[in-house]
Design a protein around this nucleic acid. Sequence first.
DNA 1: TATTGTTATACTCTATAACTATA
DNA 2: TATAGTTATAGAGTATAACAATA
Lengths: 163, 163
Amino acid sequence: MNPTIAEIRDADHPGTVIGDALANTLSNEVAFLNARTAALAARSANAALAPLGLRVRSYAVLSVASGSTPPSQRQLAAYLQLDPSQIVSLVDDLEKSGLVRRELDPSDRRVNVIVATDQGKALCARAARLAAAAEDRSLRALEPAERIQLIAILRKVAFADLE
Amino acid sequence: MNPTIAEIRDADHPGTVIGDALANTLSNEVAFLNARTAALAARSANAALAPLGLRVRSYAVLSVASGSTPPSQRQLAAYLQLDPSQIVSLVDDLEKSGLVRRELDPSDRRVNVIVATDQGKALCARAARLAAAAEDRSLRALEPAERIQLIAILRKVAFADLE
DNA sequence: TATTGTTATACTCTATAACTATA
DNA sequence: TATAGTTATAGAGTATAACAATA
């Protein structure tokens, strides 16, 4: 169960055994564990969302825009840790699909508030269920209590850049 | 401290306040928290490793190759969750820099064993220290006990694809 | 002057498929 | 037939810099 002492095998090619030693240095580095986990989770979530025409990125934007406080593009960029220039094409695509609208903020006409349409909110709800199912599969190795711990700890780390 | 109730600000532009509601749905999704954390950690680690001419990817390959059980390229791909074709250019670059060698496995001449040179091992040791320092900064929001919990839980999730 | 959104560009990473040489 | 490594290519993601409109 513990990667340090477990033999590690390539899931696709069971003949490929990776010895204990491989699972040493890197497997204690959070950055590596995070990268590996995020890669698996993103692949899984992208596959789950594909039938809806969404990807993890566009789903994230749609999800925030579907909340009770529609964000500006700048806020989306900060929250999703993307460059503001990347938000442009994400919102473009969602807008073309009729899932969100850009609304000029009357109090500051430089800012676009991104608000989900009814159609967007409906799709977001369906997407959230698919994402949750993918997450259940990704986290199947964890006890319920561990899952709660993981979320609590990751929230601290994920937002450590904001005081 | 808790992102659900905290106001979230853009670190670069303190005037940008993101309301509570933004921090709701997504911030309970492990895939999102993982992606945000991994993005921050990768950026930090890449910056830390840049003076050595390494990036997180090449460092990961070098680190495994520096261990006591040098891997095949296939094993590297499985362990790092990369496609075997991506390993080729990573190893090419490291080999050109004299940090690793491809050694033909005598028992199966299809496989290249990737073994770090002495120079590669020395650089890997320096890189590991820089990576550890970057990790300390990334995880500064955690108590020591939380850090240990995080590693234990992430290891389970990160290797759930291997039974 | 500073900030929001936008465009443009170059680079890195991801995903597939096909090829070769060995088994 | 099947596997290890390689090549090629297209698409997605990352990082910067510059610009127009607005504050």
